[in-house]
């Protein structure tokens, strides 16, 4: 499907599951664009190109046909789209928004999307973030940039239209993906997930 020359930081890791309770998997190479601009200015172009004008409220998302628009900040949205459709979408957005104050940046490779599912998925996540991830507080469609483990990430509850079959998605910067993956496995241990060891064992040299 995707270009075999590409490699995810989670290359070599495979889905960890403890059955119904919790499953962790990667949504590799999901396309991600940062779209900056006033929501009113960009909505028509969004509707035309993604099928949704974007969420009406802060910290929410809107999805249609596998394309999702996530609210990240008052003038920032993320577009999460099927793998390898992002370059074309970025180009289309730029041309459709010509003359409108906006900014499109491809951050597909910047962030890795890790999906979590299962009845205990929220309890697994709660071990790593001070944000309230209880399903009642963080409902389907919600988005939150927050602290996760010792890093920062974006949490998302993808709705059906996103075509992503995870209950939660964590976007984490590529260089921390392996760290978080293993931390999630550790957090899921209580529910039967098997521990994984992060990259390590490098030889360090600090002194001359």
């Amino acid at each position: 499907m995707s270009d075999a020359r590409r490699r995810s930081p989670l290359h070599g890791r495979s889905e960890i599951s403890s059955g119904e309770a919790a499953t962790v998997r990667e949504h590799a190479f999901l396309g991600k664009l940062v779209l900056r601009g006033a929501p009113g200015d960009i909505a028509p172009a969004l509707r035309e190109l993604t099928g949704t004008a974007g969420p009406e409220d802060a910290c929410r998302s809107a999805s249609s046909n596998g394309r999702s628009v996530l609210w990240i900040g008052p003038d920032e949205h993320w577009l999460v789209v099927p793998a390898e459709t992002e370059i074309e979408l970025a180009r289309d957005l730029d041309s459709r928004l010509a003359g409108v104050r906006h900014h499109v940046v491809d951050v597909t490779d910047y962030h890795v999307a890790i999906g979590l599912s299962g009845t205990k998925a929220w309890e697994v996540l709660a071990k790593l973030t001070p944000f309230d991830v209880h399903p009642k507080a963080f409902a389907v469609g919600a988005v939150a940039g927050t602290v996760i483990g010792r890093g920062q990430g974006v949490l998302w509850r993808p709705a059906e239209g996103s075509a992503l079959d995870s209950d939660y998605i964590v976007f984490i910067r590529s260089s921390m993906a392996d760290y978080l993956w293993c931390l999630l496995a550790e957090a899921g241990r209580q529910f039967g997930m098997t521990p994984e060891t992060p990259i390590g064992g490098e030889t360090w040299r600090l002194a001359r």
Partner: peptide
């Protein structure tokens, strides 16, 4: 192992 993220490049 989980003490702190160790960031590595591709």
């Amino acid at each position: 192992h989980h003490f702190h993220p160790r960031r590595g490049t591709p």
